Simulated scan of single mutants.
Amino acid sequence: MAALAIILLIIGAVLLVFGLLVEAAKFLLWIGIVIIVVAIIAGLLRYIRRSS
């Protein structure tokens, strides 16, 4: 689960940067943001489950 969150975070960051650099690929910016949010939520759920 932790590896999945890290992979999603990396993919999201790459898509975010690529979406900012390429004006024609603005949808990649939104996909990157969504993937980063999903990765953060997955990390938070893992942290909450581990602490309880």
Rank of each mutant, 00 (worst) to 15 (best):
A2P: 05
I7W: 11
I7T: 09
L8Q: 01
L9A: 07
I11G: 04
I11R: 01
I11Y: 00
I11P: 00
I11A: 15
G12F: 00
G12H: 05
A13I: 14
A13Q: 05
V14N: 05
L15T: 04
L16Y: 11
L16H: 11
L16A: 03
V17P: 01
F18V: 07
F18T: 12
G19T: 03
L20P: 04
L21P: 01
E23Q: 09
A24H: 07
A24Q: 09
A25M: 15
A25D: 03
A25W: 05
K26L: 09
K26Y: 11
K26C: 11
F27R: 04
L28I: 02
L28V: 02
I31F: 11
I31H: 07
G32L: 04
I33H: 02
I33P: 02
I33W: 01
V34H: 01
V34I: 10
I35Q: 00
I35F: 10
I35C: 10
I35P: 01
I36E: 00
I36H: 03
I36A: 07
V37Q: 01
V38Y: 13
V38P: 02
V38D: 05
I41M: 10
A42D: 11
G43I: 02
L44V: 12
L44W: 12
L44S: 15
L45A: 13
L45W: 08
L45V: 12
R46D: 15
R46K: 12
Y47D: 15
Y47M: 12
I48K: 13
I48D: 14
R49K: 13
R50N: 14
S51C: 11
S52T: 06
S52D: 09
